[in-house]
Nucleic acid binder design. Sequence first.
DNA 1: TGATCCATGTAAGGAGTTACATGATTAA
DNA 2: TTAATCATGTAACTCCTTACATGGATCA
Lengths: 197, 197
Amino acid sequence: MALEHAILVSLLEKPGSGYELARRFERSIGYFWTATHQQIYRVLKRMTADGWVDVLDVPQQGRPDKKEYSVSPAGRSALAAWLHAPIEPESVRHEIAVKIRGAAFDDPAGLIGEVERHRRMHEDQLAHYLAGQARDFPPAAPDDSPGAAADDPGAAAPDPGRELQHAVLRGGIAYERMMVGWLDDVLDTLRRLGPRG
Amino acid sequence: MALEHAILVSLLEKPGSGYELARRFERSIGYFWTATHQQIYRVLKRMTADGWVDVLDVPQQGRPDKKEYSVSPAGRSALAAWLHAPIEPESVRHEIAVKIRGAAFDDPAGLIGEVERHRRMHEDQLAHYLAGQARDFPPAAPDDSPGAAADDPGAAAPDPGRELQHAVLRGGIAYERMMVGWLDDVLDTLRRLGPRG
DNA sequence: TGATCCATGTAAGGAGTTACATGATTAA
DNA sequence: TTAATCATGTAACTCCTTACATGGATCA
């Protein structure tokens, strides 16, 4: 199970409430893991019981009080243990591929609209990721003294957290690009098969 | 839910037993949908009760008797109805990405071995798909009389089922290529961050 | 003699989705 | 006045995984 661990990572990056976590899962965490607020509240309760997180009641004005969660030492070592254990790659699940293969027994051309719609959604997601990348990770000027940078106090030290967040974002970008390209390929195939609607 | 529909597609391509379906889900169907035999038996039972599939008891020699399933007219129209309804794209789930982002709070270089292992698995899967493509979809000679082929009884008519199966396989190939490329990118990042292990 | 293949299932539990429920504040 | 945002949860249900269970045939 990785939801616990995704929550630990997010809370280590910044403590927050269940609601805030749910928003992060909609945004930045969403390109590698998803969860709804119902799931998050349930898991936070279990993590609290297990002593993986600490809770702080934060009274607020003009809005409901919230519980701010942060990672406890026990949670940190639970994350470390999980990081050192091997995991298996996820099995892929593409409902759209079931439809594409099923179209052979129905009307291939009838699927074109649906595939176009999916292509559009992936293109939008790609544009969104690229905008996020341009905002949060502007390209750095190339380093002209390789090897010396590590000892140069004037050079910006690479922040591992930032670098790794960017690497994961590049994965989201690569995924959406791949999907747009493949759906274009599928559209070509569908159009070649039956020029009728 | 798409497992029912994936089973309908597979049984339309070729009737078979629950066991045989489980094997197909391990092989060709595996690059867009996965299911274990336990799931398949349970769903086949429900589909039988719903009248989506017909069952035929097939006694065998030297091995257990089997039940051969085939799609009923009701199953065919259930599939058609599903094909005409819109679906939403799957949410992505990459446990490895949780680990990559979590590595910032542990030891980035310590993750290199695990990422290399995943890269190798995706490379193996890619090689497997490419071999399947070379075997089942050898490249055709280019057509030098475009437009006339459809009315030419001598030309091989494109089989929609085959074409669509190939399109889905190309999706599997594109996915594995993307993963290998991205994991290379991640390895570069991890190695840049901490030259120690 | 031990492993793998064929072939079918049950049982228990964890993970995930959908619907319901409340209630104040703020912006259109 | 309608909708969205902040903030928390419960309940019911489906889906999926893991472990257990059986038993003959074949191959190393």
